[in-house]
Design a protein around this nucleic acid. Structure first.
Length: 261
DNA sequence: ATGGCTTTAAAATAAAGA
């Protein structure tokens, strides 16, 4: 038991293909809580035994082939609060999982990509952001120490990408996407990584294509948002960038925050 | 670049990603 908590998010891009990378990241960085996205497996395919062997208990919300989220905790089982977001009963995509663990409310999110835009996928993204905002307002009203952490699929500002022109037409950069993100900040949530890097220039994703990683052509789309009750406990935030350069890496690097207990 | 990789699903291509 240390005097601080490390909470991290990692879009693994397929938990089966990424299992060795995931396990070594857990063992090397020892987050107290780890939220995963794009596990890309049905519930029965989740490698719970391997994760338990690394010291973590988990809950997960899987789906065949794509999407899928999980919450892992070191030596403690997350207590599930909610899976999925209200407001669209026909939505069967596994993108939201919420739990109580280590005295925190933790929501693990995989916000829709939204490409191509305009189009139905972009419309779904914007509706999903509305539904997320509604849930976050409810959590805020509970006045609990909370964080909503994961892959938001939004580049918040032009300082959060190596070249804004490169993705100008992308769903991640559109004013509607950015407005949806800014609305969460305006409601009182704190972007932990931005607080510790006010000038930007910090990336969490590098495309597999076009030598994006060796050229450091990245952008920031994985975020940790802290409720007012938790923001004062923020000690540090960062990116485990080196993991992007390992063999068979995900195209995302993990993002972490350190909080006082 | 309506796709330069990569993963999944599933048996050859196709969808999805960002």
């Amino acid at each position: 038991m240390t005097d601080s908590l490390r909470v991290a998010t990692f879009n693994v891009n397929g938990i089966k293909a990424r299992l060795p990378r995931l396990i070594e990241w857990l063992e090397e960085t020892q987050p107290d809580i780890a939220c995963l996205q794009e596990i890309k497996t049905q519930d029965e395919g989740f490698p719970a035994a391997d994760i338990a062997a690394a010291g973590y208990q988990a809950i997960w919300h899987g789906q065949k082939g794509f999407n899928g989220v999980a919450i892992l905790a070191r030596g403690e089982r997350p207590v599930e609060v909610q899976r999925g977001l209200a407001g669209e009963p026909e939505d069967e995509q596994s993108r939201y999982l919420e739990a109580d663990v280590f005295g925190l409310r933790v929501a693990c999110i995989y916000l829709p990509n939204g490409n191509p835009q305009p189009g139905p996928k972009f419309d779904y993204k914007l509706r999903w952001m509305d539904r997320l905002a509604a849930r976050m307002a409810t959590i805020s009203a509970e006045e609990v120490p909370a964080l909503v952490i994961g892959d938001y699929n939004v580049v918040p500002t032009d300082r959060d990408i190596w070249d804004p022109r490169a993705l100008a037409d992308d769903a991640l950069m559109q004013p509607e996407s950015r407005n949806g993100y800014r609305r969460l900040l305006n409601a009182g949530w704190t972007d932990a990584l931005a607080v510790h890097n006010p000038r930007g220039g910090v990336w969490t994703y590098w495309d597999y294509q076009a030598s994006a990683w060796p050229r450091d052509h990245g952008f920031r789309i994985d975020h940790a948002l802290l409720s007012p009750e938790l923001a004062d406990r923020l000690v540090a935030a960062g990116v485990d960038k080196a993991y992007r350069g390992r063999e068979k890496a995900s195209d995302h690097a993990p993002v972490w925050v350190r909080l006082t207990r």
